[in-house]
């Protein structure tokens, strides 16, 4: 195997093979100084545990639960909505109640599902920070949190979408949703043609995170 620096497996650190000179250790996360906010986060967590508000195992389990959330959850809701018009109406009207029928937790914050149609294409942003439907899509991608995306998608959404390879016909309205306060958003993309009779699982496999944020459409 050849790494980026041309090293072979014989001279990688830790290979146990002595060859007369040393290689630097791989840097650890803790090598740099602890920043103000990481120090504050650690201190608050330690205080809450010390005061018995919750245990270290509760904190670990919560992080584990959040890390288990993936776009497959959002995709399942959309695939069901494509196959079941009643479910689609319920999902748009009250996403929490509709998702509960599939045992999917939409989280503590109200979640609004915005349906794409032949007339409207929806796209999600949080210009103030990085609000994101974590319970249905998991951790947000770095570009979603970037100043570039956040500042430009509200001002020139069609140019930003084009950079993602998405070209919305001029007769369709592009509607940007800025998650500035107490709502979270997920896009309900349009079902691609040629998928009549497809199973929910086959449909769900087509649905990507980016389509649920609205920076692309779903294709076969």
């Amino acid at each position: 195997m050849t790494g980026d620096n041309g090293a072979t497996s014989e001279n990688l650190p830790g290979s146990g093979h002595e060859h007369g000179h040393r290689h630097p250790n791989q840097p650890d996360l803790e090598d740099g100084p602890l920043g103000y906010y990481p120090a504050m986060a650690d201190a608050v967590a330690e205080l809450l545990i010390e005061k018995g508000v919750f245990g270290a195992d509760d904190l670990r389990a919560t992080i584990d639960y959040m890390a288990s959330r993936t776009p497959a959850l959002g995709a399942r809701l959309v695939a069901r909505a494509w196959r079941d018009p009643d479910f689609k109406r319920a999902l748009v009207a009250d996403s929490r109640a509709a998702a509960e029928t599939l045992d999917i937790d939409t989280g503590p914050t109200p979640l609004l599902v915005m349906e794409n149609t032949a007339h409207v294409h929806n796209v999600i942003v949080c210009t103030l920070c990085s609000c994101y439907p974590v319970f249905l899509l998991g951790k947000s991608p770095d570009w979603y949190k970037s100043r570039n995306y956040r500042s430009r998608v509200v001002r020139e959404p069609r140019a930003v979408l084009a950079e993602f390879g998405t070209h919305i016909a001029p007769e369709r309205e592009v509607r940007v949703h800025d998650s500035t306060a107490d709502m979270r958003y997920m896009v309900l993309p349009m079902r691609p043609g040629g998928t009549d009779g497809w199973s929910e699982e086959a449909l769900a496999a087509l649905i990507t995170r980016d389509a649920l944020v609205g920076v692309c459409e779903v294709t076969r």
Binding site: P157, R158, V174, R175, H177
Partner: peptide, 9 residues
């Protein structure tokens, strides 16, 4: 520069 009906909510 986009379409007339484009909106932000």
């Amino acid at each position: 520069a986009g379409a007339v009906d484009d909106s932000v909510e």
